[in-house]
Design a protein around this nucleic acid. Structure first.
Lengths: 338, 338
DNA sequence: CTGAAAGCGCTAACAT
DNA sequence: ATGTTAGCGCTTTCAG
């Protein structure tokens, strides 16, 4: 790389003159500025980022820790974070925790060596199950900012971006009730997670506060080592009267729809299904799945903006929690509303 | 952050003594080493990464430029790259080109300010369509290493990781011929891309060199602003005799299967389908789609390893192209082989 | 065995 | 208008 020193030597001026010239300092004569800039342009000079980071003690880089990039929700969140960050002049260093506490901890520790100005992250499943977030608090204690999104913890005091998980599931369930459904089942492969628990509570609440609904809530959980396919097949066998499904994760709704179709349920006449999927799965469903849209792009953007606000005002000790609105999008797997 | 200076002051020794002690230098007395290490441990000292980067003129960071993170192939490639890189002590800075030449160029230029030691990337669609890769060559000319994966260009001389696209499609097509299929159609939403063209050529070649096959090859391309759903529906209308489909992109095979099912084709009795999808889509298909597996994890890992080899031997001017083997995985949308 | 000094590339206060 | 110097945090050569 070309350095200020190189330019200075070739022009027979001092390094600081070159530096000032490139910054259009008033102190430098217009002719010198022109000469310097011409040569800089010609040699494709770029200020060395590392040197500037060292000088300023700031990197303009955000560490982003994602539990699972193969989950479309997180891929889309990453997309939004990258876009918003780069539009503000920030780079992102991406780490994947693979849902493991050890990898999450490792990434936090490694990058808190001055590599990044702070973190945007969603908590790994393992950390949530163990409810062990000491490694995250340790970073905050070093005064390194963190924004948590989606999967958060009440134990951690920092800026957060979430959706109203409880309300979203509550509303979706209410909708099925308004259709007159009497046997509504919830399917989840994320019952370990904060968001999963909240959504389940929303579902249960909607059912129990409805006086006409007699059934007890039924929650079908699919664990890591189970095959969703089979579990959902069993579900249909066990509850043949099922007439409503709330699927609170990314994929179960689609799978349930496929199975229902195979089993000759009429959707949405006999059975309504609402998923929490992103719209990428719609290409694979016919009829089109009704979903709770999580506005993932907004979640990503809001995270970056909270992060930048925090950097600009590190001292401020009140934290913000931004709640992104969800939207129930009724497509073809719920009855049309009149 | 705690610095060497902080440690030195507290211990009443010089900075260089502290530095040497932490590196177990022979020059330093065991007692001093112990004292220094104890305090370093106690204060959670970490060498400042930025300072080390400046000193060594190397960042241990790879710039990764991905055309579209919402495409599962690239998400998986990124997953593998991150894993392999971090296991070798490298961080990755992720940029998303969004298939745009401008964003690709921007990322390359911004990060070639010393932020990264080089790049691993797949070329944006727009750059491939325009066949404009000057911005990539410009980086190579600055002696910054680049490894291209999947979407490559013969014009660019650098290390590459690809699959045998021609051969993979050739083999898949041959398989359908061996089933006795007489009306085999190729579906593609990537006919703009190097890989799309090669796969199409493989399909055409397999058909034309088969003497018993009478039909002319039929290539159905789906462009960005078309809806795959509809285009594939039209396809079935136009070619009712269709008995074989090769879908060379990530999603078309799944969609074709759904449509065939709706139209009451018997798969695989009347119609065989082979996709290039990753196995994440299998949960959405029943019968399970037969696919060409691209071994995406291997592609990512190989890219990182080629990159690190290059860094260790920057001078070497012969470039390597690594071809990752594909595998035709016959599931339920092709006839069983005996 | 320990310390001083230079240098990585840059900026900025302080001379001249 | 231009140059000198110090310093960001670290390593390393050279002196003591």
């Amino acid at each position: 790389m070309v350095t200020l020193k190189d330019l200075a030597e070739q022009l027979n001026v001092s390094i600081s003159t070159v530096s000032k010239a490139l910054h259009n300092s008033e102190e430098i004569s217009p002719e010198t500025i022109a000469r310097v800039k011409a040569l800089a342009e010609h040699l494709n000079y770029k200020p060395n980022k590392v040197a500037i980071s060292l000088k300023n003690n700031t990197t303009n880089t955000i560490g982003v820790i994602i539990p699972n990039i193969l989950n479309h929700f997180f891929a889309k969140a990453l997309y939004a974070i990258e876009e918003e960050a780069s539009s503000h002049g920030y780079n992102i260093i991406t780490c994947l925790s693979d849902e493991k506490k050890s990898k999450e901890m490792n990434s936090l520790q490694l990058l808190s060596d001055g590599s990044v100005d702070g973190f945007i992250m969603s908590i790994a499943e393992e950390s949530q199950i163990d409810n062990d977030t000491e490694h995250i608090k340790a970073i905050l204690n070093q005064n390194i900012p963190i924004v948590l999104f989606d999967r958060v913890s009440d134990d951690i005091i920092c800026d957060k971006v979430i959706i109203d998980d409880f309300g979203a599931a509550f509303e979706a369930t209410k909708h099925l009730l308004s259709e007159g459904r009497k046997h509504i089942v919830l399917i989840s492969d994320i019952d370990n997670l904060s968001v999963g628990k909240l959504r389940t509570n929303g579902y249960v609440q909607a059912l129990t506060e409805n006086e006409d609904y007699k059934e007890t809530p039924i929650v079908v959980t699919i664990s890591k080592n189970e095959v969703a396919d089979q579990k959902i097949n069993v579900l249909f066998k066990e509850y043949p009267l099922i007439d409503g499904i709330i699927a609170i994760d990314n994929t179960s709704g689609v799978i349930a729809l496929q199975k229902a179709f195979k089993l000759n349920y009429n959707v949405p006449e006999d059975l309504s299904i609402i998923g929490f999927s992103d719209d990428n799965v719609l290409q694979f469903t016919d009829p089109k799945l009704s979903t709770v849209s999580q506005h993932t792009i907004d979640i990503g953007k809001a995270s970056v903006n909270l992060f930048i606000d925090r950097l600009n005002n590190k001292a401020q000790n009140s934290t913000k929690t931004k709640i992104i609105k969800t939207k129930l999008i009724l497509r073809d797997t719920t009855k049309p509303v009149f």
